Amino acid sequence: MVINVIRAPHVPTSEELWNAVVGVYFSLQARNPSIEPGIDRLRRLELRRVRETRKYLIDTFRDIALGMPFLDSLHPFYRELIELMIDRTVYKHSLAKVGHATKALSSIYRDTILSIRSATTNYDIIRARKKFLSRVRDLIMDLKPELDFLKGAAVRLDKLPNIEPGLFTIVVSGMPNVGKSSFVRCVSSGRPRVAEYPFTTKELHVGHFTVLNDVKIQVIDTPGLLDRPLSERNKIELQAILALKYLAKVIVFILDPTSHSGYSLTEQINLLREIRSGFSTPTLVLINKIDIATENEVDAALSNITVIDGSIPIFKVSTINCSGCKVVIDHIVDNYVIPMLKESLSRQ
């Protein structure tokens, strides 16, 4: 299942919607010339205004109710990612209330049409118009909490990364400031922000590269994880967990053997152990910053990694200058991408 970036419809505030309704209503003028009596001309104009206003509001309500993503129909990664950002219960309630507003609007419309058609004076028609606009305004203002919530949700949805769950995906993981973003920049089109302080990456970033002429590979840079239980992780860290859980075909765990990241080797090894025990996905470990790491630091990292798993592939790289990064990608292509393609062909 391939899902491109989720686009949300424009959601106006209640004030914006009311101003738009007034604009639609009074933009319609009587058509000249006309030989109709004054009351018939006014009646025809107000009927047209009411119909056009109803159509505009129904289109707006439906665009919102049907244009916002249905969470249950999304890929689990996107569904849970969205639920990290917005309250699922409030979201579903808000969509339902906006969708059901068309029923209340239809009732207002029927009453108004009947009043205008049965009016015997211009005053009666104008009174029906005022009542119609007053009831429509009350309806719109009653939707204020829901429209405000959905407008905020739409802004968040528009900022979701353009991730395709169906692609072969490399998820880059590790503690903050170990070089994850630099690695993604080295091997893909992704350009996540790189800085010399932790927690620079606060959301998922995606890059791509192509192998074997037309096979598209996705690389995801994740926020840094800390050495602590899942229940204590914040929403930024949980984005990384979702990527590991639902997207990763290969996990690239980056480890900094130096003291520059601000996290000890023990903390990083504990995190690696947790990832290895929590996910069955093939995992590679990159010992980064070999341009500045001492031989003793590299050896200590190597010995600690092999204690966890003596068969885990280990690479020495320097993401500051991309040294060794191509070897990592070649290994992934040879050992995971090509076998996957062969298996796929054999099933056809």
Rank of each mutant, 00 (worst) to 15 (best):
V2S: 15
I3R: 15
V5Y: 02
R7N: 09
R7W: 00
H10E: 11
T13Q: 04
V21N: 04
V21I: 12
V22K: 14
V22G: 04
R31Y: 01
N32Q: 08
E46N: 13
E46H: 09
R51D: 11
Y56P: 08
I58Q: 06
I64Q: 09
A65N: 09
L66N: 13
G67C: 05
L74D: 07
E80M: 01
M85N: 08
I86L: 09
T89A: 14
K97T: 05
T102P: 00
K103M: 13
A104V: 10
Y109K: 09
S115F: 08
S118Y: 08
T120D: 10
D124Q: 13
I126W: 12
L133G: 06
K144I: 07
A153I: 03
V155I: 12
D158K: 14
K159T: 11
P161M: 10
N162V: 04
G166L: 11
T169F: 07
V171A: 14
V171I: 09
M175A: 13
N177I: 02
N177Y: 07
V187E: 14
S188V: 12
G190L: 05
G190V: 11
P198W: 06
F199V: 00
K202W: 01
T210W: 01
D214M: 02
K216Y: 06
I217L: 15
L230G: 03
L238R: 15
Q239F: 03
I241E: 11
A243K: 09
Y246C: 07
L247K: 04
A248Q: 10
A248F: 08
V250C: 10
V252F: 04
V252G: 09
I254A: 03
T258N: 07
Y263L: 01
S264A: 01
L265A: 02
E274D: 14
S280R: 08
I292P: 10
I292G: 07
A293W: 04
A293M: 00
T294E: 12
N296K: 09
A300D: 11
L302T: 05
L302M: 06
D309F: 05
D309G: 06
G310P: 13
I312V: 15
S318I: 06
I320G: 04
C322Y: 02
C325L: 06
V327S: 12
I329L: 10
V333M: 11
V333F: 08
N335C: 02
L345P: 00
L345A: 06
